[in-house]
Amino acid sequence: MTDPRGHALVTGASSGIGEAIAREYARRGVPLVLTARRTDRLEALAAGLRVRVPVHVLPADLADPDAPARLVDAIAALGVPVRILVNNAGYGVPGRYLRSDWNTHAAFLQVMVGAVCELTWRLLPSIRDSGAGRILNVASFAALVPSADGQTLYAPVKAFMVKFSESLALENADAGVHATALCPGFTWSEFHDVTGTRAMMSKLPRWLWLEAADVARAGIDGVERGEVVVVPGAVYRALRVATRLMPERFLLRRMAKNSARIRSTE
C-alpha cells in the first residue's frame, strides 16, 4: 500500500546508501522524490521503483547555492507533500586541507552543510504538518571518533549532522517528528572510487565493511523508532563503546598511525 501521508525526498539517490534508502522506502510503500546530479541514473532507478510507488525525479546539483530553493519550488509545483527528508547527498575531498583550492572546499561545504540546513528549513513546515514527519541525516561513524589525517572537513561536517539531528529531534518532537543521524562505518558503494581511495580502502578487512541495503534498513528502522543516533552493524556499535572508554590521546595516536595506511593524505 502506498503511504498516503506524504513523499520521501532522498538526496544523492543515484547510488550507494541513497539509492538503497530509496529502494527500501519504495519496498515499504512510501512515494518518492529523488534528486542527484546524474539524471540518467535517477531515471533508471525510478523506472524500477515505479512498479511499487509513485516516483518523481528532480535532478539538482546541491553545490549550487540556489539549488535547494529551486528544488523545493519544483516539489511544490508537483503538488506533493514531503513528510520524510533524507539528507544523504555527499562525497569526500581526499587529501590534506591545503591540497585542494578553496572553491573545492566551498562546494563541499555547500553540499554537506548549506544544502542540508536549507532543505531542512524549507521543508520542515510540511514535515511537521504531516503528523508523522521524519528527518534522516546520513552522517558517518567518523563523526563519533577522533578525526583522521586527511579528514579535515569530512569528519567535522558529519559531526555537525549528528548535533543538528539532536536539536531537530528535541525541537520538533511536539509535532511527532523524528530526526535521526545515521552513522555507518565503511560501506560498499562508489564513494571510495570517486575519491580515488579504492585501492587503499581495499586493504581493510572484509568484516569492517557494511552493505548499503543493511545500512538503509537500519537507518529507516531507527528513525521510525525515534532513535536520534543510529550506528549500523554490531562491529561498529562495539567500536563506539570501546572508543568512549579509551583516552583521547591514545585514540589520536592510533588515528595518526592508521591514516597513512588507508587514506590519501598528501
Rank of each mutant, 00 (worst) to 15 (best):
D3P: 06
P4W: 03
T11G: 09
S15P: 12
A20Q: 13
A22N: 12
R27T: 14
R28M: 11
L32D: 13
V33P: 14
D40G: 15
A47W: 10
A47D: 14
G48Q: 05
V55T: 15
V55F: 07
D61G: 00
A63C: 01
D64E: 09
D66N: 05
P68T: 00
R70I: 06
V72L: 03
A76D: 06
A89R: 03
G90N: 08
G92F: 01
S100E: 01
D101A: 06
W102A: 05
A106Q: 05
A107H: 08
A107I: 04
L109D: 07
Q110H: 02
Q110P: 02
M112G: 00
G114H: 06
G114R: 01
A115P: 09
A115H: 02
L119D: 10
W121C: 15
S126N: 07
S126K: 02
R128N: 09
R128W: 10
N137T: 09
V138N: 13
L144V: 11
P146Y: 01
A148V: 00
P156W: 02
P156R: 01
A159I: 05
M161H: 10
F164A: 06
L168G: 09
H178N: 07
A179F: 04
C183M: 04
G185C: 05
T187C: 05
T197R: 00
R198A: 14
M200W: 03
S202H: 10
K203P: 03
P205D: 14
P205S: 13
L208H: 12
W209E: 15
E211H: 13
E211C: 10
A213E: 15
I220T: 12
G222M: 12
E224W: 04
G226V: 13
G226N: 14
V229F: 12
V231F: 10
V235C: 13
R237Y: 10
L239K: 12
T243M: 13
E248G: 12
L251R: 14
N258R: 09
I262F: 15
R263Y: 13
